[in-house]
């Protein structure tokens, strides 16, 4: 696949009720804000929130699914800008902004079902 500037791709993921529990088990991140809705409410988050790194993994998946080979992903960065709650749907849209010296730079928009950016400044680089 030839990667060219301006190409776009997308993906989406539903955050099912137990996702932070699965992610906690796999990653070791058992912070109570992720697994205890009562604690999440107490600290003003409106309930348990998904681990930000799980949201980033969703964004990463959209890129590697598109690239076809997980080994092509060379860089990934983001700012965690808004909490992700259970039953949210996270949509990821990628745009190739530049292709140079064998590397494609990609900007990603990562939003919830209300259009709120849950990650910002999301950038990836893949081998072109």
């Amino acid at each position: 696949m030839a990667i060219e500037k301006g190409q776009t791709f997308s993906g989406s993921e539903k955050v099912d009720k137990y996702r932070p529990i699965y992610y906690a088990g796999a990653s070791g991140d058992f912070n109570p804000i992720h697994i205890d809705p009562e604690f999440g409410k107490m600290v003003g988050l409106g309930g348990a929130i998904l681990q930000g790194l799980c949201t980033l993994a969703f964004a990463s998946k959209t890129v590697t699914d598109w690239a076809g080979d997980p080994g092509k992903l060379k860089r990934l960065k983001c700012r965690f800008s808004a909490p992700v709650l259970m039953e949210d749907t996270i949509s990821v849209q990628g745009t190739v902004t530049d292709v140079q010296s064998g590397r494609a730079r990609i900007d990603l928009k990562v939003v919830n079902q209300n259009g709120v950016e849950v990650l910002q400044k999301v950038e990836a680089e893949v081998e072109a």
């Binding site: 993921e13 996702r19 699965y22 992610y23 088990g25 796999a26 990653s27 799980c54 993994a57 969703f58 998946k61 590697t64 699914d65 080979d69 997980p70």
Partner: peptide, 16 residues
């Protein structure tokens, strides 16, 4: 552990 993590992030790529 890789398989457990991949399933947790809902990534079913056969590489994992």
């Amino acid at each position: 552990k890789i398989k457990e993590y991949a399933k947790a992030i809902k990534n079913f790529d056969p590489h994992y």
